[in-house]
Amino acid sequence: MIFLYRPGSSFLHRMDSVSKSLWLLAVGLFVLVSADWRVNALVFGAVLLTGFVLGGVSPAMLVRRLLPLWIVAIWLLVLFSVIYPGGVTPLFHLGPITGTREGFTYGLAIAFRVLSLGSSSVFFAATTDPRRMVNEYIEILHLPYRAAFAFYAALRFLPLVQTEAATVRNARALRAQGKVAVGVRDRLQLLRSLTVALLVNMIRRVEVTAIAMDSRGFGAYRTRTSIDDIVRPRSGILFALAWCALVLAYIVVFVVLGGHGPLAAPITGGS
C-alpha cells in the first residue's frame, strides 16, 4: 500500500502510539524553541540514532524519503547566509552577493530543525500500525470512537480512491481521445472535472457505507467494546517522558533563563 508502515518488532514498533506521539511532539518542540544550530544538530543526531537503532529503519530509506527535504535545507542555508539581517561577518562571496557567518549558522539551525521534524515523523510513520494507533488513542486518550473512526475510514477508503481515480482518469483520456490538457486554463478545468468526478463517485459509495454502518448500530453509545488488548511497554513510556523532561529542562534553563530561543539572536554577540 501507499503507507510507510512496515511491521516489525523493534523498540519503536513495540512502543505504544500515544507515547510515540509524545516523543514526536517533544522532538518537534525541542527544535522549534531552539534556534541554536548545535542544539538542533544534537537533536537531529539523537533522532537518527533512535530511528536506526531503536526503530530498525534502514538509513537508505530515510535518505530516499528525505531527498526533497535535503534540498530545502540547503536552500534555507544559502538563503539565510545571504539575507540574514544581523549578518556582519563575511563568510563567502558569490559575485556581488556576500554570505555572512551569522546568517550561515542561523540557516544551519533552521536546516537541522527541518530535518529533525522530517526524520522523526518518518520514523513514526514507519513503525506505527495505523489500526493499533486508532485503538490506543481510543483506549488510552479516550478519544471519542466516532472521531477516531474518521482516521480509520480514511485509510480504509484509500485503495478504493486510488482505483476510482485511475478509472476516472482513463475515462477522461478516452473521451478526450488522447488530447492532453495544455495551458493553465485547460489544466485547471481538467483538475476540476477530475476532482468533481472522483468526489461524486466516492460520495456515492460512502453513502452506502454510512447506511451499512448505521444499520449495525454505529454511534449507538458513547463507547464501544474493544476487541484488542492494549500493550504499553513501560520502557516506551519512560522513553517518551525522558524526552519531555529534557525539552522542559532545556526550555527552562536556556530559553527562559538563558535567552536562547526563537526570538533571540542565534549566537549571542561575542561568544
Binding site: 474518521a150 482516521f151 475510514a153 485509510l155 477508503f157 453513502e207
Partner: peptide
C-alpha cells in the same frame, strides 16, 4: 435518535465518512 440525529452540529456517519474520504484524497 442520539446516535444518528441529522442535526445542525452533530456529525452524521455520512459526514464523518465524507470528511475521511476527502481528507484521505487530499492527504495522499
Amino acid at each position: 435518535n442520539a446516535g444518528v440525529a441529522v442535526g445542525k452540529y452533530r456529525y452524521t456517519t455520512l459526514d464523518i465518512l465524507i470528511i475521511a474520504v476527502v481528507a484521505a484524497i487530499g492527504g495522499v
